[in-house]
Amino acid sequence: MSETPAQTVRDGYFTEETSVAVVTARHADAGNERLRTVMDSAVRHLHAFVKEVEPTNAEWMRVIEFLTATGHITSDWRQEWILLSDILGVSMLVDAIDNRKPKGATETTVLGPFHVSNAPRYENGHDICLDGKGERMLVTGRVVDTAGRPIAGATLDVWQANDEGFYDVQQQGIQPDMNLRGVFTSDETGRFWFRSVKPRYYPIPADGPVGQLLAALGRHPYRPAHIHFIVAASGFETVTTHLFTPDCPYLHTDAVFGVKEDLIADFQTVDDPARAAELGFPNPFTQVDWRFVLARQGEGAPA
């Protein structure tokens, strides 16, 4: 007499119909309840995916080979797994869930792989472009709370690609170390300002398995032009975000889905010879002004 599905699960016998129940039953003695919850869900969704797609053994081996190649190319300076998470939209989804903000607070986006933790601290007005190359730009703004009150002493960790689409860490020996990076502090009115160059769009690393997957899907590897910021202040939620240029051809097709409409800034052309001379810029130059709105710790998103 054949066993019922319930008997099969109790006996631990694996069938197509009982696959999820049999596997998750093995998690019963997990010491970490959160781990058990996560793995139970992972098994349910993965088995549902396999049952929907019905891959052949050869196709599943291609998947395993892809994941193996992703691991092999990952190193201390290249994180192909994060890249895979990025191009699947998972990084942005996790970021959105983990950073729900009250109305009006500055939205977050992905950190990216090119942040460094030891960028130099500068006084407001400093020029972070160390090689003098690129279209000159003045960045100004304020840091305020959700009621519009200025936040003094907020730190703004800034980094960006140059006008050729490369970060300094990608061109060691070509760009100066710490080029287009710096940490600034808002003054007593919440204001900050610094000099830089207008950023350019650039491709994510596309010479590995993730790049091959993008090409097979008919997708490009480009990120739209942006400036990175981490804005932090005591008693407030830290914001990791970008400012995007409005004229970039990849604004609506970011390879990692990092663009949010509220983060598209107004990069204006300023024709003012006297102001340009004061800044040490050729005339005209670019200026962007932005207000970062931080939520107090515990303020949370509205229910």
Rank of each mutant, 00 (worst) to 15 (best):
L279S: 07
R142E: 05
A255V: 15
Q160S: 14
G173F: 06
N162S: 08
V110T: 14
V94H: 05
C129W: 03
D271L: 10
Y201A: 09
R223G: 01
N124H: 07
E107P: 00
R291K: 08
V110N: 12
S2K: 06
R62F: 07
T269G: 00
A119C: 00
V183R: 13
D157R: 12
Q212A: 10
V143Y: 04
A274S: 15
T8E: 12
D163L: 03
D86A: 04
H115T: 09
W77T: 13
D95Q: 11
P221Q: 10
R121K: 15
T15I: 01
D76T: 11
A255F: 05
R200P: 02
I97K: 05
E278Y: 06
D163F: 02
I227F: 13
T18S: 04
V293T: 13
K101R: 15
E164V: 11
T4I: 04
A232E: 15
V53N: 07
F66Y: 08
D127A: 12
V197P: 03
A161D: 00
E188K: 11
E135T: 14
L138K: 15
G153C: 11
F267M: 08
T108Y: 07
T140V: 09
D271I: 09
W193P: 00
Y122S: 08
R62Y: 09
R191S: 15
V50R: 03
V158Y: 12
A6P: 01
K103N: 10
G141P: 05
K260Q: 15
L279H: 08
A69S: 08
M137R: 13
T140A: 11
V23L: 12
F184E: 12
K133I: 14
K260F: 08
R219Q: 12
A265C: 09
T109C: 09
V139L: 13
T286D: 07
S41I: 04
E59I: 00
Y222N: 14
L67C: 11
G165A: 01
A119K: 06
K101C: 08
N124M: 01
H72S: 05
F14A: 00
I174T: 12
I82P: 03
E164D: 15
S19R: 01
D95F: 02
D76K: 09
G132M: 12
Y13N: 14
R142T: 09
D254E: 09
T8Y: 02
